[in-house]
Nucleic acid binder design. Structure first.
Lengths: 207, 207, 207, 207
DNA sequence: CATGAATGAGAATTCATTCAT
DNA sequence: CATGAATGAATTCTCATTCAT
């Protein structure tokens, strides 16, 4: 019973943290971190301003906490649950997964991405907690393929960052709607073309 | 004489604008747009706070004006002055050029990039003034190569954004120093590997 | 039995009040009344914040309650238990007693003293409850000595306040350590010199 | 002309500082340092809140600045302008001078005195800047009289602090009105009796 | 009665912007 | 045009107090 009540309290506290974080993510994504006020966050989260500070010691702490939330989305599932043998299928599965993630967590990530240009500590945190874990499996896979002679000798780190950049720019531009031309490109088609680009390259075999 | 004095005045005004913009760029890159104060900008530019407002109506206007400054760096030179015929050489030349640009203008661009996540208007402005012009030539080139059957049918828009993302991520990570592994990769080697990735793809020809 | 249980309850309540008051005294003396938080008081007292408000209706009430606690330290003992006949011995006994009190209760009094400069009500309370009772016996004694021709005609009120001020300043300065020169003056020597000053004055008899 | 304009600016700034300090002194003395808000200080000083921070970096800084203002009131004048030879006259002159000071600067000192119980740094500052300078001349005088055999051997430091305490308590109590009995004692009579107490002591010569 | 999470009214401080000189 | 003192709205964070459990 003591244990239960302890658990209960902890669960309540954890729920509150999440509740506040959701409100913060919403407001931050609408107005940006700096223009969002703690009052707005409180309102969006359905709590009072003071309550925010019972769970986070600083407005910036909300950003840091978001990093942790994002860190959980590695690609473990894809690689553990019988990954496709065909590189083409595997790469497409990864890209589709990242696209879904972008659509879901995009609003949460945008204000975070903005701050990493200014906040060194946050940048390192995001890199260590999110980028590294998310790219680990892909890196390993690329390295294996290189070692077995199926992939060219291109540094797996460069490859994974290239893939990330490619997706962030293309998916981000499509989602943000700044370039009309993306309206004619479906997510699936985009994924297909990125797969081709990365596996086959631009050059047509002249053999 | 009237014309002359007008010209003179205009030149002075233009010089002042640039002077202020340089100060702003410096301070913004050091502290980020929001944490930089107009007082600091004034000091860095060597003018008084009031003077800033004689040339820009708003702190945010400084950001907008920076976009124009950046818009001038298209790749026109490379494509106009006898571009290399070999795609490999051409792509590498482009990448090296962009790397130099990143090293030079990176600090000026960082705070700008940060804001496009929050500021819709700025995002569109930057896209129209900088991204579109900078990618126009590459897009055209890719399209030509596709039409002539030398490049695979991958949407030139996707390709150019992929290249941008690839460069921003890889060069940005190398410059910011968050990942030690980039210390062992020279800019030239990075460029070479990106060329290979984009032209040949990862897959080794099994023919 | 009803009486007993009531007594028991009352004793418990009284104990709690004291417990809280001790915690408050400790925290107030460390950080001052205004900078001390009720949370800190609660922690120091070993109770929850809410419990404080079951016994005191206001943070300020804690200060008021402290005044009562201090009011008990009149000089009754010295004057009731066969007071020394020699004024010199009596005065020294009083001074030594007050010095001990200062060393013990000083930390508790400091935040209280600070507030009397701002809080009129508290000032009057402290004066009525502590200063008046503590000086009553001395005042009476001085008046008797004047009436009997042994002391000069100096208003006993002035004399007692002079003695208080003299002790507060000298002992306070010695205890707080702001003036190194007090390190070379023992409490006993300080008491002796104050006795001489008050009984004989500065002037050497020129007779 | 350049010099003049510089002087002018400096004078303006100094005037503003004083203006703000006067407002602060007024509000602090009415409500106490902690309960006084910067908004109230601004209003009392006739400036905006922001202006306060153009001249003082912190609310507490206002207190520190007050210490400096008070430091100027040493007793130099009395000791330099043909001091009375008779100790009785000299001591009375000093006491009357301090009484005037208390009446004038009392409101400014009260909130300061309150804070020295909590704020170590302020305590030391006030002691070094105000107490030490104000008591220097008296200390020297007492020491001389002791050396020449006219005063008893009582540590001059103890004597001056005793005098201070005596005056602060008696004058403070008279000014604050907490004890009705001070209504029947004029400032002059109070001064006379303190002189007698300090020079002749309480004991009537039994010779 | 005990608890401590929730509250929200402030409070100190900052800073973009204005404007008199 | 240049200046920089003045402004005051806005913001983050604190903390005494309440109240449901």
């Amino acid at each position: 019973m003591l244990d239960n009540s302890l658990d209960f309290k902890e669960q309540m506290a954890e729920a509150r943290r999440t509740q506040i974080l959701m409100g913060a993510a919403q407001v931050f994504s609408e107005k940006g971190f700096h223009k969002a006020t703690t009052k707005e966050v409180a309102k969006a989260a359905g709590v009072s301003e003071g309550t925010i500070y019972n769970y986070f010691s600083t407005k910036r702490d909300l950003l840091v906490a978001m990093v942790d939330q994002l860190g959980m989305n590695s690609l473990k599932n894809i690689f553990e649950d019988s990954p496709p043998q065909d590189p083409r299928q595997l790469l497409k599965a990864i890209i589709i997964d990242r696209m879904h993630l972008a659509a879901e967590r995009g609003p949460m990530m945008a204000p975070l991405l903005a701050e990493i240009f200014n906040d060194v500590e946050l940048r390192e945190l995001l890199y260590d907690q999110v980028v590294i874990p998310a790219s680990r499996h892909v890196e390993q896979y690329v390295r294996q393929q290189i070692d077995s002679g199926r992939f060219r000798q291109i540094d797996p780190v460069i490859v994974t960052r290239a893939l990330m950049g490619t997706l962030v720019f293309n998916v981000g531009l499509k989602l943000s709607g700044v370039d009309d031309r993306y309206n004619d490109i479906s997510f699936d088609s985009l994924a297909e073309q990125v797969v081709t680009l990365f596996l086959d390259g631009l050059l047509v075999d002249q053999s």
